[in-house]
Nucleic acid binder design. Structure first.
Length: 279
DNA sequence: CCCCAGGTTCTGG
DNA sequence: CCAGAACATGGG
C-alpha cells in the first residue's frame, strides 16, 4: 500500500528536483505535468514533489523507508557549506549558480555499475531507453506500472541474444560479464566500496566494459565516493578551457561534486565553455 | 551518407 | 606504451 510522507530541508535553496534528476547522474526519473517527478529507486516506485522546505514523497513500499530516501537524496550533507567553498572560484561560481539545487544522489552500486556501462559512447536519451527496457524485461513489477532495476542474478547466465530486446549493442555482453562476476563473487561491490580509490577502480575494471571513467562513475554515484572525478568528454573540455592551470587542489575531497556542477553547466548552458574568454 | 553520443577494447606500430 | 579503428544503435 503506497504511503506518503514528507522530509524537511534546512533550506529550500539547496534542493531542486529538476536539477537533481535531470543533470545526467540518474536515468530513471521523469517529470510529471504538475512539477512532481516520478521514478524508481531503492527497489521502490515513487512520486516526489517539493513544497518550499518540504519534500513530499509517495513511496510504493509498506512504510518505514523515510531514512532510506533521506540517504538517497543526500539530505545529510551540507550543500550550503560546500557551495560556499566552491564559490571562492570564479568558474565554479557560475556553475553553482546555474544549478544551485543540484545534489549528488546516493544510488545503489549495482544500478550505477550497469547504468554507466550502458552510458559509454552513448547519449543520455538512449541510455534512459535501454535502462527502461532492461527493467521491463527483467525487473520486478512495482505499483504504478513501474519496474524495479533487475539484480545481478536476473542477468547472470543470460546470453547477448537474451538481451537483444534492450538494443544495447555491444554493451550487452558487458552487462552480462558484470552480472556473472557479481554472481560468482569475483567482484564484491560492498567490499570495493571500502577500498582506497585506486584499488577500488582496479577492482571494478576487472569487469569487461569498465574502464577508468565508468569505474569513477560507480564510485561517485553508486558508492558516495565524492573524491572521485569521472573524466568524460565534457569534463575534459571544461578542464582544458576553464582550468588550463589545473583544478584547484583545495576542492579535492569533494571534487566529484564540483565535477557534477561543471558537467551539467558545460553540457547544457550555451556558452559555458567560452564564458572564460568573455570576462 | 555523414557525424556524434557521460568509453572501452582491440590492433598494429 | 600509444594513436587509431572498431564497436551497436539511433538521431540529426
Amino acid at each position: 500500500m503506497p504511503h506518503t510522507f514528507s522530509l524537511s530541508l534546512p533550506s529550500s535553496e539547496d534542493f531542486s528536483l529538476a536539477q537533481t534528476f535531470d543533470c545526467g547522474q540518474a536515468f530513471r526519473f521523469s517529470p510529471l505535468p504538475d512539477g512532481a517527478w516520478q521514478g524508481v529507486a531503492l527497489g521502490r516506485s515513487c512520486v516526489i514533489e517539493q513544497d518550499g522546505r518540504d519534500i513530499l514523497l509517495t513511496c510504493s513500499c509498506e512504510g518505514g523507508c523515510e531514512a532510506l530516501w533521506r540517504d538517497y537524496l543526500d539530505l545529510g550533507r551540507d550543500y550550503s557549506a560546500i557551495k560556499a567553498a566552491f564559490c571562492r572560484d570564479e568558474t565554479l561560481t557560475r556553475a553553482v549558480s546555474y544549478c544551485p539545487g543540484m545534489r549528488l544522489l546516493r544510488q545503489e552500486p549495482w544500478e550505477a555499475l550497469c547504468s554507466f556501462i550502458i552510458s559509454q559512447n552513448n547519449n543520455i536519451p538512449r541510455i534512459k531507453g535501454i535502462i527502461a527496457r532492461l527493467c521491463e524485461l527483467l525487473g520486478e513489477q512495482l505499483p504504478g506500472a513501474q519496474y524495479a532495476f533487475p539484480g545481478p542474478l536476473a542477468i547472470a547466465g543470460k546470453t547477448p541474444e537474451d538481451l537483444a530486446p534492450l538494443r544495447a549493442g555491444f554493451r550487452a555482453k558487458y552487462l552480462i560479464d558484470a552480472a556473472n562476476k557479481i554472481a560468482s563473487g569475483a567482484v564484491v561491490l560492498e567490499q570495493i566500496k571500502t577500498l582506497p580509490c585506486e584499488e577500488a577502480k582496479s577492482a571494478l575494471m576487472a569487469i569487461q566494459g569498465v574502464g577508468p571513467k565508468v569505474a569513477d562513475c560507480v564510485l561517485l554515484y553508486g558508492m558516495a565516493r565524492v573524491e572521485c572525478v569521472p573524466r568524460d568528454v565534457w569534463i575534459k573540455r571544461a578542464m582544458a578551457v576553464l582550468y588550463p592551470g589545473g583544478f584547484p587542489h583545495e576542492f579535492a575531497p569533494v571534487a566529484g561534486i564540483a565535477q557534477q556542477y561543471l558537467f551539467h553547466y558545460c553540457r547544457t548552458c550555451p556558452g559555458a565553455l567560452t564564458a572564460a574568454a568573455s570576462i
